[in-house]
């Protein structure tokens, strides 16, 4: 009565190995991306700004920070209008020195984005490491790290950054200020931002540490650093990705704020924040475009990155819960 062997059964869903791209395109993540027009738009905006910033030397009509290319006669040209003296037309107008604002924004975005990414990377590495150690070791190590994090959180990020800048100004000789400023900026933003990563990673680590696959590794004597790196880290990266995206927007804004306050990048290498600071001097004399366009760019960039982060959080969440 025994008919055929059961091997005829699993005919459905053959496990054909597919390429990573095919899997991605078929994945839930991609699907939820495509179904959200705002997200697609945000991604396009971010992509456009990134590409434009990257290719600034190619795209920009002039190098705005090479004094040789500037013509003082072009100063205060209104957007899309011919200059009354030279007859030159600039899309977004010029500033007091006759600098093309479009070019300035492209170059400024470069600095802003560079600082943003670097600061996020620095904060993430620091925060993830401390979070993993705190969550896995527990006990006094955990208490120490998390208390430091608490103290850090009780200061506004901007104050922390200002403090670090103050120390830097006091310690480093003035000759090096301009050169090192950008690194200090990255350090300052990174140090003011690691706490979120540490907290998130710590709580995920606490959850993963008690899962049986980690215990199974402990039973056979896998050393703790290996467990952290190979087993736990890949499983806590989901939430980190979300924080990092939103953190990128925050870092870019923080950089601009610091530059606006005059403690950021030097005017020789201006970022969006520097442009805004310079531009606001002319706001009340009627030259509104000098502050408006860098400001809009910053807004667009930060908003788009934030929207991407929000989508990522929502898209990853049900998967994590499942």
């Amino acid at each position: 009565m025994r008919t055929e062997p059961p091997t005829s059964a699993p005919a459905a869903a053959p496990p054909v190995p597919r390429g990573a791209l095919a899997r991605l395109l078929d994945g839930d993540l991609f699907h939820s991306f495509i179904r959200s027009p705002i997200t697609v738009l945000s991604a396009l905006v971010v992509l456009a700004i990134l590409v434009a910033a990257l290719l600034a030397p190619v795209i920009a009509p002039q190098n705005p920070f090479d004094p040789a290319t500037l013509n003082l006669m072009d100063g205060f040209t209104r957007p899309m209008q011919a200059n009354e003296f030279t007859g030159n037309v600039y899309w977004l107008g010029t500033d007091a020195q006759g600098r093309d604002l479009f070019s300035a924004i492209l170059y400024g975005s470069r600095v802003s984005i560079l600082v943003g990414f670097a600061a996020v990377a620095f904060a993430a590495v620091l925060g993830i490491t401390l979070g993993l150690v705190a969550g896995y070791r527990g006990g006094w190590v955990d208490s120490l790290i998390m208390r430091v994090a608490d103290v850090q959180l009780s200061f506004p990020a901007i104050l922390v950054a200002l403090l670090i800048f103050g120390v830097f100004k006091g310690v480093v000789p003035p000759a090096l200020h301009d050169k090192a400023a950008i690194y200090v900026l990255i350090l300052a933003i990174g140090l003011s931002d690691w706490v979120q990563y540490a907290r998130t990673v710590r709580s995920s680590t606490l959850a993963e540490r008690n899962k049986e696959y980690v215990q199974a590794a402990r039973v056979i004597g896998v050393p703790a650093p290996t467990i952290l790196l190979r087993h736990i880290l890949p499983n806590v990266m989901g939430p980190v990705l979300v924080i990092a995206t939103i953190g990128l927007a925050l870092a870019i804004i923080l950089e601009s704020t610091l530059s606006f306050l005059g403690v950021g990048v030097p005017p020789t290498q201006p970022s969006l924040g520097t442009l805004i600071r310079v531009g606001q001097d002319y706001l009340f004399s009627g030259e509104w475009w000098i502050v408006l366009f860098p400001g809009l760019t910053l807004l667009l960039l930060a908003l788009s990155v934030n929207l991407l982060g929000d989508w990522l959080r929502d898209a990853l969440n049900p998967r994590l819960r499942r």
């Binding site: 009565m1 025994r2 008919t3 059961p6 005829s8 059964a9 699993p10 459905a12 869903a13």
Partner: peptide, 21 residues
């Protein structure tokens, strides 16, 4: 032997037939 099929892979006919002697 085997396991209950997933909802997206219910075999035709009697759903139990692949496991049924």
């Amino acid at each position: 032997d085997g396991a209950m099929p997933r909802l997206d892979a219910i075999p035709p006919g009697c759903a139990f037939h692949p496991r049924c002697a």
